[in-house]
Design a protein around this nucleic acid. Structure first.
Lengths: 126, 126
DNA sequence: AGATAATAGTTGTTTGTGCACTTAATGCAA
DNA sequence: TTGCATTAAGTGCACAAACAACTATTATCT
């Protein structure tokens, strides 16, 4: 693998990530009261259309288990998800989305996609 | 632009960024006592091969001005760079790399590239 | 069965980052 | 020159994230 390819790709990833994250934080935050991590968790649950274990979420969003635990705690406090102990394995916790959570996610989804589309478009034309 | 393209690209960026950042933090930290941001700043100065203004660095690394100010402060404390007030515009600050900084950067460079190469290779084969 | 290891999730602590604000210097207009 | 806006950089504060330590439950081994 070429050195220059590695450096260029990394530069692309860094710059895209920074601009998209920044824009998502602003837009999702201002318009829907959600952080990128909060949205991501809701999005995963909606995508799978079922309750998920913390660890399953851990595999999909790029957060440590402890960070994820706190994201879920914030979401629960905002009544967007509920936590229930799994009775097959009582160590585990299922996270379900509430109706309010579904609504909020549905509202935020177009914003999320629009921001990304904008960022990727800008990346091509600059 | 296709919705699916946007979602997939974003997923790629998120996952690559997370894995590379995590690995860089670990390897650069353990082996060279540098964070990714610290390395990035040193790398930019070496690349340009001259002292740079804080704001010039700001355009190249993806950090806020305040975060950058603190990175430079940490680097200065570690004697890897020096800060001198620009006498043309006395608001500005030049950041120069020290010999020790050059040495440390030269040591860390192969690690940095190797980590990225590894991450990108894994991404292709998984 | 009892002891030990392993796993799921939460909590304490530290650290890096962004935002808003401050300080200092420069540019510009009347 | 004076007054005011602008720009460069640093600082106080709040917050999210990672790491390590902890609790509770389950699996394993003798």
């Amino acid at each position: 693998m070429e050195e220059q390819y590695v450096v260029d790709t990394w530069q692309y990833v860094l710059s895209t990530h920074a601009r998209a994250m920044c824009a998502l934080e602003r837009e999702l935050g201002d318009r829907h009261g959600l952080g990128p991590s909060e949205f991501e968790v809701l999005d995963r649950i909606v995508l799978h259309d079922r309750k998920l274990r913390i660890q399953e979420l851990c595999d999909e969003v790029h957060l440590s288990q402890s960070a994820l635990s706190r994201v879920v705690a914030r979401l629960e406090k905002a009544s967007l998800v509920t936590r229930v102990v799994c009775d097959a394995d009582r160590r585990g916790v299922y996270v379900s989305i509430t109706d309010e959570g579904r609504t909020r996610h549905a509202e935020a989804l177009p914003t999320h996609r629009a921001v990304l589309k904008q960022v990727f478009t800008d990346a091509l034309t600059s």
